[in-house]
Amino acid sequence: MKIAFYGSSLLSSYWNGAATYYRGLLRDLAGRGYDITFYEPDAFDRQKHRDIEPPEWARVVVYDANDTALRDVIARAADADVVVKASGVGVYDEELLEGVMRAARPDAIRIFWDVDAPATLAEIGMSPDHVLRRVLPQLDFVLTYGGGQPVIDAYTGFGARRCVPVYNALDSSTHHPVPREKRFASDLSFLGNRLPDREARVETFFLDAATRLPGRDFLIGGNGWESKAMPPNVRHLGHVYTRDHNAFNCSPLAVLNIARDSMASTGFSPATRVFEACGAGACLITDAWVGLEMFLKEGEEVLVARDGQDVADQLAALTPMRARAIGEAGRQRILAGHTYSIRGAEVDSLLRRQKAILRDGVAA
């Protein structure tokens, strides 16, 4: 089957945390025989900060962010057996959604793939005339990269025929243990862009912990933090390219995960960083969120904190030996149950069943 996938970027993780998710899932689906074309706009300087060049397992069409190019890529949806519009493309989101679903063939599978479901649901909940609410009943699936039953219930309540979470996972060929590097050495590291719905939680869990432990070294990576006031024991790196994520995760004593506001409140929404860090064998400390036990066991495979004091206490008590044990236990748990091979098999099964339903329905 041919998949036309309209997303933010496959080639760049610059201001684009979904890149790892896209790459892991689509590479696995390509290995299962899918013919994939990924459409991404030339926007937000992402093409200047590519992590990868176009891969052999997908065609990538980079289009200009203008009306003419938009019309061209929308028309190409008619060539696909599966048409996917992802959330958060960043430009022409509403036009793309309405356009590609209208251009899709009658026998094509139509999917909205939400990589930030809690935020999307909050947005459409406040806007009865939102394009997504109009389009939802026409779609075969809403797929999300997290959210559990609360997100399923919310989407079906808005008219979706079927909502299926396809959680983040690990691509072990990309994220794995590597030797430590001095430039990433610290006691606690955090990687994430500065976003309005994350900043307060970074202050609570990361910067407060650094203030409480002035003798320990803290490292923060990601875009937007250069203008943020921070304690003197915090070092800021700026954007960290995907090629450096393994070293970033392997070099500190521990790595911190901080969920965005909506994902923390909804639960069941582990970020890509969780799987990247665990895949590298990092000792992960995460903020608390409902559903964590689906992925990692507290105290054995991950450490959990409710606030900055908890983070400071966990870090102060952590020895290198215990950090290594937790990191390896977490890595084995993720390898056993949360890889993109497993997620790809789930999506493959959904698509093949739906294709059979559509084919039989058309024949009837």
Rank of each mutant, 00 (worst) to 15 (best):
residue 95 E to S: 07
residue 182 K to R: 12
residue 339 T to M: 12
residue 9 S to V: 06
residue 257 N to T: 10
residue 162 R to F: 00
residue 128 P to Q: 11
residue 6 Y to F: 15
residue 110 R to N: 07
residue 198 R to G: 03
residue 245 H to P: 00
residue 139 L to V: 05
residue 256 L to N: 04
residue 138 Q to N: 13
residue 89 V to N: 06
residue 231 P to T: 04
residue 92 Y to F: 15
residue 237 L to N: 03
residue 55 P to M: 14
residue 14 Y to G: 00
residue 249 N to W: 00
residue 149 Q to G: 09
residue 297 K to F: 01
residue 215 G to I: 06
residue 363 A to E: 08
residue 122 A to Y: 10
residue 273 R to Y: 07
residue 157 G to P: 13
residue 200 A to L: 11
residue 136 L to P: 12
residue 207 L to T: 02
residue 99 G to T: 13
residue 307 D to A: 07
residue 40 E to D: 14
residue 245 H to A: 05
residue 288 A to V: 08
residue 74 I to D: 01
residue 321 M to S: 14
residue 290 V to L: 09
residue 147 G to D: 00
residue 348 D to S: 13
residue 79 D to W: 10
residue 219 L to E: 02
residue 338 H to L: 04
residue 311 V to Y: 02
residue 80 A to Q: 08
residue 283 C to K: 07
residue 2 K to T: 12
residue 209 A to C: 10
residue 132 L to A: 06
residue 209 A to G: 09
residue 341 S to E: 15
residue 246 N to R: 10
residue 224 G to C: 11
residue 264 A to L: 13
residue 142 V to S: 02
residue 45 D to L: 05
residue 352 R to A: 10
residue 49 H to P: 00
residue 198 R to E: 00
residue 82 V to H: 05
residue 62 V to K: 02
residue 333 R to G: 06
residue 268 F to G: 01
residue 323 A to R: 08
residue 125 G to T: 14
residue 178 V to I: 08
residue 290 V to T: 08
residue 353 R to W: 05
residue 99 G to L: 12
residue 342 I to H: 09
residue 40 E to F: 13
residue 62 V to I: 13
residue 228 K to A: 04
residue 101 M to G: 03
residue 28 D to C: 13
residue 57 W to T: 14
residue 337 G to D: 13
residue 269 S to K: 01
residue 362 V to E: 06
residue 77 A to M: 12
residue 57 W to Y: 14
residue 58 A to V: 11
residue 123 E to K: 06
residue 294 M to A: 11
residue 4 A to E: 11
residue 80 A to Y: 09
residue 330 G to T: 09
residue 251 S to R: 00
residue 307 D to K: 05
residue 161 R to I: 00
residue 21 Y to W: 14
residue 91 V to K: 11
residue 19 A to N: 11
residue 325 A to G: 10
residue 317 A to N: 12
residue 332 Q to I: 07
residue 263 M to D: 05
residue 44 F to Q: 03
residue 240 V to G: 01
residue 57 W to A: 11
residue 77 A to D: 08
residue 170 L to K: 09
residue 341 S to D: 11
residue 11 L to W: 10
residue 345 A to W: 01
residue 189 S to H: 04
residue 172 S to D: 12
residue 266 T to N: 05
residue 302 V to R: 08
residue 261 D to V: 02
residue 53 E to N: 15
residue 15 W to V: 01
residue 98 E to C: 06
residue 281 G to M: 12
residue 58 A to I: 14
residue 146 G to A: 15
residue 197 D to H: 13
residue 216 R to I: 03
residue 121 L to V: 06
residue 304 V to H: 03
residue 296 L to G: 01
residue 158 F to H: 14
residue 299 G to D: 09
